[in-house]
């Protein structure tokens, strides 16, 4: 579903991604872990066609980036720590707007379905600025999945959420990913990542330095794997 070869991204003289290689199979839920500044967000921005690579090849859902960006965008849902919603529009108006941009068929009934899915039924007509942070993030999941994308990219979706809101987001994410979507999520919350993801890749200094499946994790779990991975960034280690 996602194939990236020797991806290089530079901002001026600074190289953020240094020949990154990764493959994600359909239906996988990949947790992309790494310290601050490792290039996780930059990588997701390239996958979502918001940034262009300097070198290397990127293929999402069978389409090449940046050449076939429109095709990729139509199959992609993106959720970041910012909800990307308009505060002066109601929840329903926000989804109507994005539904029009994505040319969603039977928009009215799809919006009702999405509000039900994210647990916001009854709050459709309230302005988004009156929603709590957790509710905004749940509506943002609705925005990201409104057009039934094949691939979901989640960039630190738990940032700024309290415990209750995070648990609600967990439930919504589990529901959304049960539908067989391919998901790539960046997170600093290893416990949450361990709970949700089927595979873990560690990105450090612009490269994937370690990868393992959930089954391949040793008894001491994801934290030990992550620490080992970022302490030896030069060589990749493969847990499974």
């Amino acid at each position: 579903m996602i194939r990236v070869n020797k991806l290089v991204k530079r901002f001026g003289l600074k190289t953020i991604l240094r020949g990154l290689d990764i493959q994600v199979e359909p239906g996988e839920f990949v947790g992309l872990l790494g310290p601050n500044g490792a290039g996780k967000t930059t990588f997701l921005r390239i996958l979502s066609s918001l940034a262009r690579p300097n070198l290397g090849s990127v293929e999402v859902a069978g389409y090449q980036l940046p050449q076939q960006a429109a095709q990729v965008r139509s199959r992609l849902g993106v959720l970041s720590h910012q909800p990307l919603l308009y505060p002066n529009l109601s929840g329903e108006e926000n989804l109507t707007f994005f539904g029009r941009l994505y040319n969603v068929a039977n928009l009215g009934s799809r919006i009702a379905e999405v509000f039900e899915l994210v647990g916001l039924a009854g709050r459709e007509r309230d302005l988004v600025r009156t929603y709590s942070r957790g509710m905004q993030q749940r509506l943002a999941i609705g925005r990201a999945t409104l057009h039934n994308p094949d691939v979901l990219l989640l960039d630190e979706p738990y940032t700024g959420l309290d415990q209750d809101a995070s648990e609600m987001l967990d439930d919504v994410l589990k529901k959304v990913t049960r539908e067989g979507r391919t998901v790539v999520m960046t997170s600093h919350d290893l416990a949450r990542a361990q709970d949700l993801c089927s595979r873990f890749d560690v990105l450090s200094r612009g490269k994937i330095v370690a990868t393992t499946s959930r089954d391949g994790l040793a008894r001491d779990g994801l934290l030990a794997f992550y620490r080992a991975a970022i302490s030896q960034p030069a060589e990749a280690t493969h847990g499974a």
Binding site: S74, L84, P87, Y102
Partner: peptide, 15 residues
Amino acid sequence: VEKDGNCLDGLLLAP
């Protein structure tokens, strides 16, 4: 308005 909540990214992500 587009930049405040990073809504411009939401617009640019649309096909």
